[in-house]
C-alpha cells in the first residue's frame, strides 16, 4: 500500500514538470508557432529559480522570477519568429542551445548545493487522510493544484469556450482568414508565444524548487523535448496534455521505484524509459488508428510564418 501511494505521489510530482511545459507549448502551437526552445527555456527557469531563492528564500518569488525570465526569452523568440518571421525550427534549436549553455554557465556556482528554499507540502485537511489517494493527491506542494486543476481547466475554457480562444485558434489554423476578419494575427502570436515561454520557464523552476531541489548540469535532460512531443500526442489540447504528462510521471516513477527497490535492471536503463516511451507514444497510436491523425491534427498553419503584405 505504501508502494502504491509512493508511485502515485511521484507520478503527480514528476508529471507536473511536463504538464506545465506542455501547456506552455500548447499555447504557442495553437496560435501557429512551434517553439522548440522549451528545453532551453526550462533550463533558464530552473537556474533562475535556484539563483532567486539563494538570494531571497521565497519559492514563490523564485517561481515568479522564472516566469519572467521565460517570458523575456519568449519575447526574443517571438520577435525573431513572429515579427521578423525567421525560421521557427532554427530559432527554436538556437534557443535550446542558448538556454542550456547559459544555464550551465551560470549554474556552475550553484552546482551541488540544494536549493535554499523549496515549495513545501501542504496537507489538505480531511482529504489528505483518505487512504492511498489522500497522501498522493492532497499532501503535495501548492503548485501542483495550479498545474493539474487551475491551468488546464482555465486554458481549456479560454481556448474552446471564449471568443478570444476562437480567435487564437483561427490564427493557428488560417491566419490569412483571421487577418481578413480583423484579428490581430501578429499580436496574438507574439502574446501567446511569450505566455507559453513563461510557462516553460515556470516548469524549470518547478523542477528545481519542487521536484529535484538542487541545480546540476544538464538536469533538464530532455524534458523540454518530451513536453514538445506530448503536445503532439495530446492533440494540442491542454487537458489532454496534462493527462499525458501524468502518464509520463507514471513511467518516471516506475523508474524511481525500480532503483529504490533494486530491481535487477541497471539504473541507466530505467532512466531510458521516458525517452523510449515518448518515441513509442509518437509512433504506436498513429500506426494503430489512422483516424487519430485527423482528429488530433495540428493547427493547419503550424510553423508557417504569416506574411500579410507579400503575396
Amino acid at each position: 500500500m505504501d508502494l502504491l501511494t509512493g508511485i502515485l505521489a511521484t507520478t503527480f510530482l514528476a508529471g507536473g514538470v511536463l504538464a506545465l511545459a506542455a501547456m506552455g507549448e500548447v499555447l504557442a502551437e495553437r496560435v501557429g508557432v512551434v517553439n522548440l526552445g522549451a528545453e532551453g527555456l526550462m533550463a533558464m527557469g530552473a537556474i533562475t529559480g535556484v539563483a532567486t531563492v539563494a538570494a531571497v528564500p521565497s519559492p514563490a518569488l523564485g517561481f515568479a522570477a522564472a516566469l519572467v525570465v521565460g517570458a523575456l526569452f519568449g519575447m526574443v523568440f517571438a520577435f525573431a519568429t513572429v515579427t521578423i518571421r525567421a525560421n521557427q525550427v532554427l530559432c527554436g534549436l538556437a534557443l535550446t542551445l542558448i538556454g542550456t549553455g547559459l544555464a550551465n554557465t551560470i549554474g556552475r556556482s550553484y552546482s551541488g548545493t540544494p536549493s535554499a528554499a523549496v515549495f513545501e507540502r501542504v496537507e489538505v485537511p480531511l482529504l489528505s487522510d483518505i487512504p492511498i489517494l489522500g497522501p498522493a493527491l492532497f499532501s503535495q506542494n501548492v503548485l501542483l493544484y495550479l498545474i493539474y486543476i487551475v491551468l488546464p481547466l482555465g486554458l481549456h475554457y479560454l481556448l474552446f469556450h471564449t471568443r478570444h480562444g476562437l480567435n487564437m485558434r483561427a490564427v493557428g489554423e488560417n491566419p490569412a482568414a483571421a487577418d481578413a476578419a480583423g484579428i490581430p494575427v501578429g499580436l496574438i502570436r507574439f502574446a501567446y508565444v511569450t505566455a507559453g515561454a513563461a510557462l516553460c520557464g515556470g516548469a524549470g523552476a518547478y523542477l528545481t524548487l519542487a521536484f529535484v531541489p538542487a541545480w546540476s548540469d544538464g538536469m533538464v535532460a530532455g524534458r523540454g523535448w518530451i513536453a514538445v512531443s506530448l503536445v503532439i500526442f495530446a492533440g494540442y489540447r491542454p487537458v489532454n496534455a496534462v493527462l499525458t504528462a501524468l502518464l509520463f510521471g507514471l513511467i518516471t516513477s516506475i523508474g524511481f521505484v525500480g532503483q529504490a527497490r533494486n530491481w535487477p535492471v541497471a539504473a541507466p536503463f530505467l532512466s531510458m524509459l521516458p525517452y523510449l516511451g515518448t518515441i513509442a507514444l509518437m509512433i504506436v497510436p498513429v500506426l494503430a488508428w489512422q483516424k487519430v491523425r485527423r482528429l488530433m491534427a495540428a493547427p493547419a498553419a503550424l510553423g508557417e510564418p504569416f506574411y500579410r503584405d507579400v503575396r
Binding site: 521578423i84 538556437a94 542551445l97 542550456t100 549553455g101
Partner: peptide
C-alpha cells in the same frame, strides 16, 4: 557550455 550558448546565439542571428 558558454561555447554552446554562443553557438546558439550565432544560430539565432543566422536564422534572422
Amino acid at each position: 557550455s558558454a561555447v554552446l550558448a554562443m553557438t546558439g546565439a550565432i544560430l539565432f542571428l543566422t536564422a534572422i
